[in-house]
Every structure is written in C-alpha cells, then in structure tokens.
C-alpha cells in the first residue's frame, strides 16, 4: 500500500517536472498573442488578456518573415536532400562492404562534426566573397551540406548495421549491383532510419545560426537571423519577437511529435554506435 502511494507521488512529480520545464515554451506562445501593454506590464499574466494577432502581422510586414521562411525552407530543404543522397551510399560503404578501416573512415567523418564553427566560417566567408555568393541561398546550401553530412553518415551507418544481412546476400547472388541493392533494397528496408536521419539533418540546419550570420545579411537571411533583427540597441519588440519565435518553433514541435520514440533511438545511435 505504502509503495503504491510512493509510486503515485513519483508519477505526480514526473508530470510536475515536465510541466514546469516547458513553462518557457508556453510563455513565448502566450506572449506572441498578448497586446503590447500587457507584455510590458509589471505583473505578468497567464490568462487575463485579450488575444491579438498584431505581432504576427508585424513580424511579416516589418521584419519580412515571409522571405525568411522561404529562405529557410529552400536552403535547409535542398541541403538536406543533397546530404541524404551523398550520405546513403557512403554510410552503406562503411557499414556493410567490408571496407578496410570502415570504422576509421566513419570516425574521421564524424570527427568533422566537432569542428568549431568559428574556425571554418572565415574560409567560407572568404570563398563566398571571391565567388560573389555572399547573401545568396546557394552559399548556405553548400555550407549546410558540409555541416549536415558527417552526422548523417554516422546515424545512417548505425541504422544500416541493424538491418538483417540475409536479403542483401541473396540479392548479391542474384547478381544485383551495389547501387541496385542500395536503392532498391536498402532504401525501402531502412526507410524509417533514413527518415529519422533526414529529419535530424533538417532540424540542425533549421536552427543553425553562426554560418547564416556570417554569410547572409539581407536577401538570403534565414529565420534565426531574421528573428534577431527584432532587437536593436534601445528597444526590443518582445511581441514580434515571440511571434517570430513561435513560427520558428512550431515545425520543430511538430517534428518531435512525428518522431516520438524514434528520437531516442536516433539520438542514441548518433551518440553511441
């Protein structure tokens, strides 16, 4: 009996901790629909205000959020696609083909994930200047390919190592080529793993800030950079800022619910295997 009360108390504690943990996320959503005078009032409120859409209008009108959304979608979407096309054969090669030093290759590729952004961003900046690509979507796509590739190869390799070998062996005996095996056999079999990898790659680039800050300033800015523009030295438009933040967060929250239990597996694969 006491143990059941004890269990129930811990269950309640677990719920409480999660709810408290998420207050900031709830807070930004609430702030985005509060009138400005309520936002700046000395006593914050969770419920007593008239919801308004004015900040969402302003973030589009004044801060060109529409353009930032398109830029983010294009650069992140295209680079994720390229990353996946490059990563799948590479991951297959290091995972399955008995490559000499396959694991060493995988580790070397992964180690590039740990490069500090400030070290490589300067050469990117210089190169982009030479090719007059500063403030274009192209330069961000190229950089995000390099940024996403190491991690994608690493997680995909983890997923591929878990697949059963027998089907591939049968296909080999039937005389299918490696590319045929990868795209006709592995692609459908590893589809969940590939989807998880693609979503992770998308998320990392979607949230990326440093490269976007250095390589774009106006017409190609992505959402994180556009958000930061709601702040100047003297004045912060908390309402517009929150509206922009919500627009940037929403797809990520959707992703979290879409992935659910795959997240732990994906993260663990990326971390451990």
């Amino acid at each position: 009996m006491t143990s059941s009360i004890y269990t129930r108390a811990i269950n309640v504690l677990a719920v409480l901790v999660v709810v408290i943990w998420l207050i900031p996320v709830v807070w930004v959503a609430l702030t985005s629909v509060k009138p400005t005078n309520v936002i700046n009032a000395e006593t914050p409120t969770f419920y007593s205000f008239e919801p308004t859409g004015e900040h969402y209008v302003e973030i589009f009108d004044r801060f060109r959020m529409d353009r930032a959304i398109v830029n983010s979608l294009v650069t992140v979407g295209v680079s994720t696609l390229i990353v996946m096309i490059l990563a799948l054969p590479a991951a297959y090669a290091v995972a399955r083909m008995g490559l000499m030093g396959g694991d060493t290759w995988a580790l070397v590729i992964l180690s590039l994930r740990f490069l500090p952004g400030v070290v490589v961003v300067l050469p990117y900046f210089k190169m982009a200047t030479w090719f007059s690509l500063i403030d274009t979507q192209i330069v961000l796509i190229v950089v995000y390919v390099a940024f996403g590739l190491p991690f994608a190869v690493w997680i995909l390799r983890g997923f591929l190592l878990d697949l059963p070998k027998e089907v591939e062996e049968a296909a080999r005996l039937d005389g299918l080529s490696w590319l045929q095996i990868i795209f006709r056999l592995i692609l459908p079999m590893a589809a969940p793993g590939i989807a998880v990898t693609a979503i992770f790659t998308f998320v990392f680039s979607w949230n990326e800030y440093l490269y976007a800050l250095f390589l774009t300033y106006d017409s190609a800015t992505t959402m994180p950079v556009a958000l930061q523009k709601t702040i100047d030295l003297y004045n912060v438009l908390w309402g517009s800022l929150s509206a922009g933040a919500v627009i940037q967060l929403l797809p990520m929250i959707l992703v979290v619910f879409l992935l659910q239990r795959h997240i732990a597996r994906g993260l663990a694969l990326g971390a451990v295997k």
Partner: peptide, 22 residues
C-alpha cells in the same frame, strides 16, 4: 512526458535565448 521533455533540444538557441531574455 518523454516526448514533451525533449522539445527544448529541438528548438533553436536563438528563439529560446531571446525568449529567456524576456
């Protein structure tokens, strides 16, 4: 609960950093 608690990891440090500033 496990799904909800992971939300902070997936949202950008920029959006959340600015929210925390507020």
């Amino acid at each position: 609960l496990r799904t909800l608690i992971i939300i902070p990891v997936f949202i950008s440090p920029i959006a959340m950093g600015l929210t925390w500033r507020f």
